[in-house]
Amino acid sequence: MTMISSAANPSNTQLVAQMIQTSLSIMVGLFASSFVIYPQGKKHSALITV
């Protein structure tokens, strides 16, 4: 409950902003690395064998 009432403590707001920024940067990095590794998409998957 203390994270929600961040108006009383501004350090909680900074913590939440840093957590969101870190998670978004990890997501963007993983998304970009998938394009570097598989630029045209993955042709064969190890999970689906036809």
Rank of each mutant, 00 (worst) to 15 (best):
M1S: 03
M1E: 00
T2P: 02
T2W: 01
M3H: 01
S5A: 13
S6R: 00
A7Q: 11
A7E: 06
A8C: 03
A8M: 08
N9K: 07
N9V: 05
N12H: 02
T13R: 04
Q14S: 10
L15E: 02
L15S: 00
A17G: 05
A17K: 11
Q18Y: 03
M19Q: 02
M19T: 00
I20N: 09
Q21R: 01
Q21N: 04
Q21L: 04
T22W: 07
S23D: 14
S23M: 14
S23K: 15
S23H: 14
L24K: 10
L24M: 14
S25T: 04
S25W: 00
I26Q: 06
I26D: 04
L30Q: 15
L30H: 15
F31D: 13
F31K: 14
A32D: 05
A32Y: 04
S34A: 12
S34K: 12
F35I: 08
I37Q: 13
I37N: 13
I37V: 11
I37H: 12
I37Y: 07
Y38Q: 12
Y38W: 09
P39V: 04
P39D: 08
Q40A: 00
Q40E: 00
Q40P: 07
Q40G: 05
K42F: 08
K42G: 04
K42H: 06
K43L: 06
H44C: 11
H44Q: 15
H44F: 13
S45W: 15
S45E: 10
A46C: 07
A46Q: 14
L47S: 05
L47H: 05
L47E: 01
L47N: 06
I48V: 05
I48M: 11
I48W: 13
T49M: 13
T49C: 12
T49A: 10
T49S: 08
V50E: 04
V50R: 09
